[in-house]
Amino acid sequence: MEYKAKYITEDIKLSSYDDKFFKSDIMFDHHMLVWFISGETKIIQANATYMFRKGDIFLIPRNQLATIINYPKGGHPHKTVVMHLSVERLKRFYSNRNIRPVPLKFPKIFAFNAHPLLESCLASLIPYFEMKDIPDDIASLKITEAISILRTLDKEIDNVLANFEEPGKISLVDYMEKNFMFNLPLEKFGYLTGRSLTTFKRDFKKAFDTTPQRWLTQKRLELAHYHLAEKKKKPVDVCYEVGFENLSHFSFAFKKQFGYAPTALPAS
Results as ranks from 00 to 15, higher is better:
F106A: 12
P185Q: 01
Y128R: 04
Y7E: 03
W215N: 07
L14E: 10
E222V: 10
A264H: 07
F112C: 02
F252V: 12
S86Y: 04
Y128T: 04
S15P: 00
V236Q: 13
E177A: 04
K233T: 08
T211K: 07
L90V: 01
P116G: 08
S120L: 05
R151K: 14
L59W: 01
L59V: 02
T210S: 13
K206Q: 15
N113K: 13
F129D: 04
D203R: 10
N113T: 02
D19E: 13
K155Q: 14
I134C: 12
S38D: 04
Y3I: 10
F208W: 09
A46P: 02
I68P: 03
V160C: 00
R92I: 04
A123W: 03
A264E: 10
D133M: 08
I143L: 06
N159V: 02
H249V: 14
L265V: 14
G168I: 11
F22H: 14
S95P: 01
P235G: 00
T49K: 11
S268R: 03
S268N: 05
L141H: 08
Q218Y: 12
F28Q: 05
G55E: 09
D137H: 14
L192R: 08
I12D: 03
A5R: 15
M181K: 13
K105M: 09
H78M: 06
M131R: 14
I8K: 01
K188Y: 12
L161P: 01
I149L: 05
T263V: 11
K234N: 10
K178E: 15
L141T: 07
F106P: 07
L14R: 03
L184Y: 00
E245V: 14
D237M: 07
F208I: 07
F200E: 04
L172W: 07
G190R: 06
G259P: 05
F58I: 02
E10D: 15
E177P: 01
S120G: 14
F52Y: 13
K234Q: 11
E40S: 05
R202C: 06
P266A: 10
Y175F: 15
E156R: 13
H31F: 05
I126S: 08
V160D: 00
I170S: 14
Y260W: 08
R62T: 10
S251A: 15
M131V: 04
K234M: 10
T211V: 02
N98W: 08
F244K: 03
I57K: 01
L221C: 10
L118T: 04
L228M: 06
D154A: 09
F22I: 08
Q257K: 15
D133E: 13
S124H: 05
K91L: 00
P262S: 03
I157M: 00
G190W: 05
L172R: 07
Y226G: 03
L153I: 11
W215S: 09
T80F: 04
H78A: 11
S148K: 04
L104F: 11
R214G: 09
S268L: 01
T41I: 13
L117I: 06
I126G: 03
K169R: 14
A139Y: 01
Y128I: 06
I26C: 05
T199Q: 13
L150E: 08
L122N: 02
F182M: 06
I157H: 00
C239I: 03
Y128C: 05
S86E: 08
M176Y: 12
A229W: 11
D18Y: 15
D203C: 10
